[in-house]
């Protein structure tokens, strides 16, 4: 029983972080039809910025604030300078469909090597803002700490804010219209260009938050978020790539799956099991958990 509770809670924690990264990838995918591998790089920059602020001031919330602002700025910059140039230049040939993905892979490499040149490639530890001691419930320790609780709560808050923006505001409506049918959105008078940039801004914010939340549980290095990117991507694919609730659901499913494998099977099968989870979900729901059109609307 205690084991099961622990597994669920850890799954929820992992799932929260995966959801945030998946959300970032889905936001970019919806706005520009690009799988943004540089998201891991963008988030690593913001996490290093947060790290600098935390080590200097010791104020975690200030660090989060700066990370979020930097994430937004970097997201806008990548869309404006790289993606727009790319779409102006590349419109035909066998690579056209692949070019954006390759460009983001290249950007990931560039960002990572610049981060390495500035901060070095050695591992650093990012101090947790709250205690990482496990909770004790009725005399028994559960593998769940205040930090895990913080991760879950912060993710829930972010998700609520995002869903209000997307479902309740004109801006959100513009974002959704431009994502699904850019041409009709333009004919309706929506300025799709800035709206796209905004999609990247929101993605940058989600990625930045994922980075600062997950790093206190592990270590910080120029590639330390690569795995989060892979998990986030798989979660997004499980959720159907188009759907924001799908991304969240995909993240939770993956998080629980990983947690179950960790607790009951063994550490070395975690990565292979991701592949299995992905294959199964693609066979059962080829367009993702929420991939059918009816539910895709949100």
């Amino acid at each position: 029983m205690r084991n099961l509770l622990g597994t669920l809670l850890i799954g929820l924690t992992l799932g929260s972080v995966y959801s945030l990264m998946a959300l970032a990838l889905v936001l970019v995918w919806r706005s520009t039809r690009v799988v943004n591998f540089a998201q891991a790089g963008q988030a690593i920059v913001t996490t290093y910025i947060a790290y600098e602020i935390v080590t200097r001031t010791g104020v975690f919330w200030l660090a989060v604030l700066f990370a979020v602002a930097a994430g937004a700025l970097i997201g806008a910059g990548v869309e404006y300078f790289l993606m727009r140039t790319l779409f102006r230049h590349v419109d035909e040939g066998p690579v056209a469909a692949l070019a954006p993905v390759i460009a983001t892979l290249g950007l990931l490499g560039v960002i990572r090597s610049i981060v390495g040149m500035i901060w070095g490639n050695d591992f650093r530890s990012f101090y947790s803002p709250v205690s990482t001691d496990n909770f004790v419930l009725a005399g028994e320790t559960i593998p769940f700490s205040r930090l895990n609780l913080l991760i879950i709560l912060a993710t829930v808050v972010v998700m609520i804010i995002f869903s209000i923006i997307f479902q309740r505001t004109d801006l959100g409506l513009s974002l959704r219209a431009a994502a699904f049918q850019p041409e009709i959105a333009r004919l309706a008078g929506i300025r799709v260009g800035p709206i796209r940039t905004l999609g990247w801004v929101f993605a940058g914010v989600a990625g930045a938050i994922a980075g600062v939340l997950v790093t206190p549980t592990t270590i910080l290095s120029p590639n330390s978020l690569d795995l989060l990117l892979v998990f986030g991507f798989v979660a997004a694919v499980i959720g159907g790539l188009e759907s924001l609730p799908g991304a969240v659901l995909g993240g939770l499913v993956l998080g629980l799956g990983v947690s179950i494998v960790l607790n009951y099977v063994g550490t070395s099968l975690v990565f292979p099991s991701i592949f299995v989870v992905l294959i199964i979900s693609l066979i059962v729901r080829p367009n993702g958990l929420l991939g059918n059109k009816k539910v895709r609307s949100a």
Partner: peptide, 24 residues
């Protein structure tokens, strides 16, 4: 820091430039 990261930097920049200006 530069020695370890420069090769990756150059290759990534080349990759981006290739995709931008000579995608095929």
């Amino acid at each position: 820091k530069v020695v370890t990261n420069l090769p990756g930097f150059i290759i990534s920049v080349l990759l981006i430039l290739t995709v931008l200006f000579s995608p095929n």
